[in-house]
Simulated scan of single mutants.
Amino acid sequence: MIGLIKNEFMKLLLRKKVLISSIVLGVLCILLCLLISVAYKFTTKEAQIESQQYIIEVFEEQLEEAETEEEKNLAQANLDEAKASLEIIKNTPSEDDPNWRINVEETINILKEQLNGLPNDSGEKEEIRKNLLEYQELLNKDIRPMSEMSPKGINMLGYLIAFLGSLFTAIIVIIISSDTVSSECTPPTLKMLLTRPVKRGKVLASKFITAFATSCIVIIGIEIIASVIMGLIFGFGDPAYPMVAGTDYKITTVNAMIGKEAIAVFNSSYLSTIFSVLLKSLLLQVLYIMAATSFFLMISTLVKSSSASIAISIVLLVSINILKVIPYVKPVLPFLFMTYGNTTTVITGEIKISTLSSLPSPIFVVLIFLAWTIIPYIISHLNFTKKDILV
């Protein structure tokens, strides 16, 4: 068995498309990191204050140049709103603010007032509570607030999981595993392999293990390497940084025109850390890769042409992603493993918003991944054993 796995690894390493796709994926991750680091410069507190001050100057000029009373009133209203926005920005907690503790305390007081003024069945109340939990934990642990666009290593890992999970993870798995069997059917290599004194189940298992392990190494390896590089440049961030997870959502029907919407259930979220959330996300990503490998391996056993196997896999992937936006398909989404590419949303609970379903809890998603691993693999096994006769 070990010899078969080594042999499969060698064959994968010699495939140019695996190397090229890994390089392309790495370049895409680098571009994303550069984009986030550039965008971060425009979202710092100083940059926002400078931008808002410029807007105020523009409105002041408009007020001076206004001729009619109506124009003056409009310019004055815009100026007052811009000044109010400037005060909000100044009082917003940020990591580059020396007075961040004072601003966090003030924000907590504002959030408490907002929380008390809302009914329990309001989805907004749980969103406010989530912010309140995070800010209180920042004070308790004396951790500076971190911007959502922060290029720090641990924050970038979350972005990379979401970015790759949207589509690219499945594409890499397709490239690695979808022609694992079919590529050996075009030349008569499989026939020669099956005539050896090796059990057919071991041959298939070696191909599955190799494709699965290679996909994990490429995808998760690139995510971690890119995050480490960003960490060395911008800092790694605090792994104990508070992050709220497990939010439950109640799915309700608004009306015939709007349809359904997800409303956060009050008191359903719990406080965790960014390290814990990302670690669970990576573990779920491993299961996602395993399910994807099994599914695309099944296609490889059903189709004899290597190019046809890859084409069918990509068409299925694209079709499912397009069908996701169709309301009538929404009820099916929770049962498809491709729905859960961004595994972080499973941990935070936000996946229930996109699927408009209360089903996708972490345990439910794990069961879906296992089902999509076991059932396609059984089909692959049954079909592969027949090749002893059909090839």
Rank of each mutant, 00 (worst) to 15 (best):
S37W: 00
V38T: 15
V38P: 06
A39L: 12
A39P: 14
A39G: 14
T43L: 04
T44A: 10
T44N: 09
T44D: 09
K45I: 01
E46S: 07
E46W: 10
A47N: 15
A47K: 14
I49P: 04
E50M: 12
Y54D: 02
I55G: 00
V58R: 05
E61I: 03
Q62I: 11
L63Y: 05
L63Q: 01
L63S: 04
E67G: 14
E69L: 11
E71S: 13
E71K: 10
N73Y: 02
A75L: 00
Q76T: 06
Q76H: 08
N78R: 14
L79V: 02
L79E: 05
D80F: 05
D80A: 05
E81I: 08
A82F: 14
K83L: 08
S85W: 00
S85D: 09
E87Y: 07
E87D: 15
I88G: 07
I88A: 12
I89W: 07
I89T: 11
I89Q: 02
I89H: 11
K90G: 05
K90R: 15
K90F: 06
N91D: 12
N91M: 11
N91F: 01
T92W: 10
S94F: 05
D96T: 10
D97A: 13
D97C: 15
P98V: 12
P98F: 11
N99Y: 14
N99Q: 15
N99T: 10
N99R: 05
W100R: 04
R101C: 01
I102L: 15
I102P: 02
I102A: 10
V104A: 13
E105N: 07
E106M: 07
E106Y: 03
E106F: 02
I110Y: 07
I110C: 00
L111G: 03
L111R: 08
L111P: 06
K112Y: 02
E113W: 03
Q114I: 00
Q114G: 03
L115I: 05
L115Q: 05
L115G: 09
L115T: 04
L118I: 10
P119R: 13
N120M: 00
N120D: 15
D121R: 11
S122C: 09
S122A: 14
S122G: 01
G123I: 12
E124Y: 00
K125Q: 00
E127Q: 01
I128K: 08
I128H: 00
R129F: 01
K130G: 03
N131V: 06
Y135L: 12
Q136I: 09
L138V: 02
L138R: 06
L139G: 00
L139C: 06
L139N: 04
N140H: 12
K141W: 03
K141C: 11
P145S: 04
P145G: 04
P145R: 00
S147A: 13
S147G: 07
E148A: 14
E148G: 14
S150I: 09
S150H: 01
P151G: 01
P151R: 01
K152R: 15
G153H: 00
G153N: 08
M156H: 02
L157R: 02
L157H: 03
